[in-house]
Design a protein around this nucleic acid. Sequence first.
DNA 1: AATTCGAGTTTCACATTGTGAAAAATATAA
DNA 2: TTATATTTTTCACAATGTGAAACTCGAATT
Lengths: 252, 252
Amino acid sequence: MIKSLDRAMEVLQYVSAHQGLTLSDLAAGLGQAPATVYRTLVTLEGRGLVEFDRDLQTWSMGAQAFVIGAQFLRRTSIVERAKPILRRLMEATGETANLGMVRERSVLFVSQAETHAPIRAFFPPGTLSPLHASGIGKALLAHMPQERFDAFLSVPLPGFTASTLTTRAALLTDCDLTRERGYAVDEEEKTEGMFCVAAPVFDASGDAAAGISVSGPVARFGRDRIANIAVHVVGAAQSLSAAIGAPSSYRA
Amino acid sequence: MIKSLDRAMEVLQYVSAHQGLTLSDLAAGLGQAPATVYRTLVTLEGRGLVEFDRDLQTWSMGAQAFVIGAQFLRRTSIVERAKPILRRLMEATGETANLGMVRERSVLFVSQAETHAPIRAFFPPGTLSPLHASGIGKALLAHMPQERFDAFLSVPLPGFTASTLTTRAALLTDCDLTRERGYAVDEEEKTEGMFCVAAPVFDASGDAAAGISVSGPVARFGRDRIANIAVHVVGAAQSLSAAIGAPSSYRA
DNA sequence: AATTCGAGTTTCACATTGTGAAAAATATAA
DNA sequence: TTATATTTTTCACAATGTGAAACTCGAATT
């Protein structure tokens, strides 16, 4: 491991999480010498990864960070293939449709078809959400190999609202229910007022590596409406699984 | 400038441009020792910026690159405010609508509303295109301060198709025409078969910093249709300029 | 099954450089 | 004009990044 590179990447990640800070603020927040942070920023600026606002004396993410970050989505065809499916799902349900991928202990939201309704759910691409506190995350936990599931549970789970499932027993019950009906729900477990229906997407190896969800304000999700939306979500997830080559036995 | 950090960022940018290569291929392509490239990649992997496929022995961009890259779009509200405008423009014209921002000598495509037509233009977010060989780029050149425009022309302009404008005289004429009618066109200047109508978006300082365009196969762009599309594109660009606070005198 | 080969990973000696305190430069406020 | 705070550069030195070589591992060949 290259120590100075790792320190520099800490700087880059800090800037991305705290845009618009001055050199002094960044150095203080990072616990690094201003001179060191300065040289790091100037080097990254030379590559276009950060940008400096001369008037405000603030540092922010640069265009090249977007350029290289966008390449992550080009590794596979899943985002491209998901787009029409998400759009149809949004039109069929009238709510925002999302695509998320599992990464470590989180779901990474990578694509979205936004409803035109004035009040809407919004998970901008690039957002990470914990597996146990998101619809897609719980759909994936329900289809996770036992060993990985146990490893996930070996770390204490943070709560976000009064509804967050944080115990092994609660998650096991929820996973059983998810497998039984083919979809997971997030009922204000990460965000107050937010409801979400999600289903797993299987890849060519038969692993649940991504998920599709529909989300919106909890007040719009009555019992009958949930049943109807779930049918569309499960169908969309199955379509995407098929599109990316999942074995047919995983699509049921 | 930190030499080792700069070398490491060269590795990162190289991986993003050449995904799915092995360590040996990357080291050869970069002209760096495999041991050095290896330690760089492992350090970046630790931060989630690259990912290693153990089966294929290949390196690709990681989720954290997407996470931090996506933050570039959150610096300002332009992408959010553009979304409904791009969608309406796509619906009004039936072709793909794009938002691009100027960066150095290029346009960076940051957002897009794709037409549902089977044959379509596609500029995935994160794509860079030279200013002189794109509709948005030429719209921005037409409103660029003279000094920056001269600096731009001081570097030889590469051609991409037989139609690319590569001389000062050709670009000056094109800029005059663009200012006169309020929009630029890209008629197979970057990509064979591609047509594009673009208009500049002004920011709060009155600078032309972004642009909106509609693009599609040249065969679908007859003279009458171009006139109609141009009206929509100019209107959309003016709406976005207003939405992000451009002075009213710049919106005419 | 044993051997060979190529790529990935680790070790090691050493030249290079990253670091942070201090100084200098710059811009803003009083 | 002076003071202050921040940014930027300099400098001495400790830390480390580098690449060749060695080692490890897995796949292919015999």
